[in-house]
Simulated assay, not measured.
Amino acid sequence: MHELIESRWSARGYDPTATISADDLTEILEAGRWAATWGKVQPVRFVVGIRGDTTFTAMTELLTRGNKPWAPAASALVMVCTTDDPDDAKAHDYGAVDLGLAVAQMSIQAVALGFNAHPMAGFDTEGARVRFAVPDDKRAMVVLAVGRLADDPSTLSPEVRERDSLPRRRLPLDEIAFAGSWGQAFTTGA
């Protein structure tokens, strides 16, 4: 596995004094823009806030209880939007796939630049629609926090410090990759 993928994780313990340059943030957005897209539709859109500006402040106000304590320390918040057309199930579903691909690439690009990216679904999507005038044919699905990790974990709240210190776990491959039929573990034959 590539080291950028292996080192990617969704931290909460950001340095509230760290900034992000316009060039670095643009590189992260470009990574999302260049993600694969179904049928060349390119439905993904971004609303970008940098800590201290009105967009960032408005996004922090829309976060749910679990994200409000730590996300305002991020250097930037990017609300990622895609197609909202439940009457066209294919476009609706593939728009969500395109958004996921964009967020993944943005997260990896953030790691490559020395940042951490944490995708969040915990925000008021209807409030975001109103506050940012998101068109009816789009839906906000993710807010991506981008920041630098705090150098000194003792400066973090006990809750954030504890959550960030938990081991990163994923289900074993033989429980999620199948061959032949569902539940039959994929093996390489080795």
Rank of each mutant, 00 (worst) to 15 (best):
A22E: 15
R139C: 03
M141H: 10
A18D: 11
V44Q: 08
S7N: 14
T57H: 09
D85G: 02
E3N: 10
R65N: 08
A11L: 11
D24C: 02
D88A: 08
S75I: 10
I20W: 00
I20Y: 01
I108G: 01
A190D: 14
G114R: 13
Q42M: 07
S75Q: 09
P158V: 11
V142A: 02
Q105M: 12
P119T: 08
D88F: 01
E126W: 04
W70S: 05
H118F: 00
V160I: 15
D174F: 01
F56A: 00
T187G: 14
A150N: 12
A31C: 11
D137Y: 09
R33V: 07
A73L: 02
T188P: 02
S7F: 07
P153F: 03
L62I: 07
P16R: 03
R161C: 03
D85I: 06
T60S: 12
Q109M: 14
A74K: 04
G180F: 06
T37E: 09
V47L: 08
R8F: 05
W182H: 13
V143D: 03
L29V: 15
W70G: 00
V48A: 05
T55W: 01
A121V: 13
P86N: 11
K40W: 05
R8N: 02
I50D: 01
F186T: 04
D152H: 03
R169C: 04
A145S: 14
P86Y: 10
D84S: 12
M106L: 06
A150H: 11
A179V: 08
T187R: 14
A179Q: 15
F46N: 05
V134P: 04
E159K: 10
R169P: 01
A76F: 09
L99V: 11
D84T: 02
A110I: 07
A18W: 09
Q109G: 04
A18I: 07
T54E: 15
T155P: 00
A11I: 12
L173A: 15
T64C: 07
A89I: 11
T17N: 13
R12T: 08
G100R: 02
P16Q: 01
P69K: 05
L62K: 03
E61Q: 14
E126F: 00
V41R: 15
R148N: 03
S21L: 09
M59P: 09
T187W: 06
R168F: 09
A150W: 01
E3I: 13
A35G: 07
A71R: 02
I5D: 04
A177T: 06
D84P: 00
Q105C: 06
C81R: 09
D53I: 06
A110K: 03
A140C: 07
L171C: 00
M59V: 00
W182I: 10
A91G: 11
S157D: 11
A102P: 03
A121M: 11
T57D: 15
P172K: 12
A18F: 08
A91V: 04
A22N: 13
L101C: 13
F186K: 12
V134L: 03
L173Y: 05
V146L: 06
L156Q: 13
A179P: 00
C81A: 13
D98H: 03
A145Y: 04
L99N: 06
D23M: 01
L156R: 02
S7V: 08
P119L: 09
L29K: 05
D137S: 10
F132S: 05
A179L: 04
S10L: 05
E30M: 09
D98E: 10
G66N: 14
